[in-house]
Design a protein around this nucleic acid. Sequence first.
DNA 1: AAAATCGGCAACCGCGAATTG
DNA 2: ACAATTCGCGGTTGCCGATTT
Length: 377
Amino acid sequence: MGRAPCCDKATVKKGPWAPEEDAALKAYVDAHGTGGNWIALPHKIGLNRCGKSCRLRWLNYLRPNIRHGGFTEDEDRLICSLYIAIGSRGGALAAQLPGRTDNDIKNYWNSKLKRRLLGGGRRPRGAPPRLVLAGPGPAVTAAATSLNAMAASAIERMQLSVRLRRLEAAAPPPPQPFTFYGSNNLAAPPWQQPISPAASGSSEMPRRLHHHHPSGAAATSSYSGLISSWPSSRSHIIHDAWLDASSTPPLSTTSMGDAATTTTTAGGESSSSTPTVSTATTPFIGGSIDMDDEIDMLLQQIRCFDENGDDGDDDADQRLIVGDEAAAGAENYLRALIDEAAANGGDVGVGSWSSCSTPGVDSVFHEYAQLDYGQYN
DNA sequence: AAAATCGGCAACCGCGAATTG
DNA sequence: ACAATTCGCGGTTGCCGATTT
């Protein structure tokens, strides 16, 4: 039995919002708040809209202090750093950028920043379409597709990291070296104070900090997947940094500010825990973790694809076998790329795959997919 | 000038997690 | 403890203006 729909999709209005609808929604929420129930809200207002649609409209457009467009250079850098560190987690990115919505950041990232950093730009008319990731072999399974996405994400983030470093190196000496928090010292930013017991009781805590993806399919950018596969020492650093980031001043009702959180084990079970709050915040991109560490981190992310082990599900086990092989192949291929780049220029960042003219991560991984699947296994 | 194509953005969809009764 | 409900997130879609040929 499927879940009940939140509204009658056949009769509810969809598409762009009319000014009158905006005004009605804004007036009501300003006067009464959401009442904690978005589903019931449109009925109270008399709007023929889905509650989810109302929520989205409010959060992304009508909410006070929202800024649209005009991203600053600092914001660009912060978004890039966060993407490299935690992947395409719009909510977490938005929490670091007051006044920005996750949707705005997501669109900005996908349409501008990523293209700017990884190269590309407008494709000349008549040019072949950009490469699309293909499965690593004739049998393209869900697992292989998932691996593609995961490895592509890992490679992409490494490319971005390298590219950022190159840009930083090419730029005139900045007043402050580029770091995760825009400052190179290890002191926590003003808002990064240890979470107090009082704050830990705040109702501002997000309902969760991650998604768990049993299939691994969407773990491409999963913080939990990354953390679960980490050596404990490094996991601690990242975990602390994550929690520190979560103490950003509230942006909205979705902001982070509480201490109760959830960690995910390698087996996939979630468990509640009281977080460890770091007293010495560690910037982990451009800060205390060097390039080798970053490569290790990304390779770990590739590997964590198939950590769930044998669960007795034959289909899943079959996927895991494919995942093992593909993960090993992708990892070895990535290492080969790194070695080649290092041999050519002595620095990973000098490799052609990270230059502005490279076609981007999809092509890099496509290249791997086009090779003999077993070559790097 | 017209057609084709691309890019930006608002909005939607589906899923998993959290909450509630 | 369990099922139903609601929320929040990431990914995707579709529209429309801009650009290119």
